[in-house]
Amino acid sequence: MSVALPLGWSVLLPVLLLAVAWAAVAADAVVAGRAAGRPVPWTVAAALPGREALRLLVGQRRRAVAGDELLRGVGGAVLPIAALLAAVVVPLGLRPVADLGAGIVWFNAMEVFAWAAVWLVGWGANSTLSLIGGYRFVAQGLAWELPHMFALITAAVGAQSLRVTDVVAAQQDLWFVVIMPVAFVAFLLSVAAMAFWGPFGAPLDRDIAGGAAAELGGVDRLVFMTGRWLLLVAAAAMAVPLFLGGGHGPWLPAWAWVLVKTLAVLAALVALRHRIPTIRMERWTEFSLVVLTPATIAQALVVTLVGLGEGGLS
């Protein structure tokens, strides 16, 4: 039983993701301007992503002495591709571009390519600060990946399926965020963390002069930064089918609900970003392993027991 969208949607998917990413970048600029006390008008913010992209397109690329250009190029290209491939299982409405039987695992597998991408970009530049940025991401990744996986598993257990459309179908009456709030929070945190964004921006932080992206200029930087925003959008969009009922909702058509909910998740992330400072890796690791991992395991256990109590495997 496959309900995948027609093949043409695979061309449209990057356009949709880019459009949402554009909106997220603009909203982020507005919120950042307000937080800094220098408000950015909406009109300026809306044009900002395009202006920045054009600036980077005509900008000079940067090459470090004796850098590993091949690995750096691969790393930079992998990031947006991983984001797009992760998004193919997200239902745009009630139907995804690819309705994979192991869709949740597929999403997980594609999104961890960010590990390789950021590390490769950091390594390939042959610069100390870049490399530190790459290592920071791996250190952070080891901490968020476990709670993230348990959050994914909890949603799968709740629906008793790894197919994302089944997870959406299981939420027709009750959104999973209600019965598995801990998993939802852990997932939301890992959305920001996998895009090394906001409080998890240490890999690209100012204290290491831009970190993994320090030596990126011109089109290299454009591809890398676009990949980062696409990853954030794809992961935020995945929160909708996993926890927020997917396309289910009154009045509006399914695709509109998915869009509204995705934008809401992104808005929450953007709003939080400017209220929470960057978290140091060792503090985040400790919190993640001592608090978040046991909490998500307990959440998975509760959902499993409830599932068994309601009649077990169907």
Partner: peptide, 21 residues
């Protein structure tokens, strides 16, 4: 074997990055 194939991708990416370190 969709599940096993995708799990191999997932495991190997993480493993190889950790191994690189």
């Amino acid at each position: 074997l969709q599940y096993l194939g995708v799990v191999i991708v997932l495991m190997m990416v993480i493993e190889m990055v950790v191994m690189a370190v």
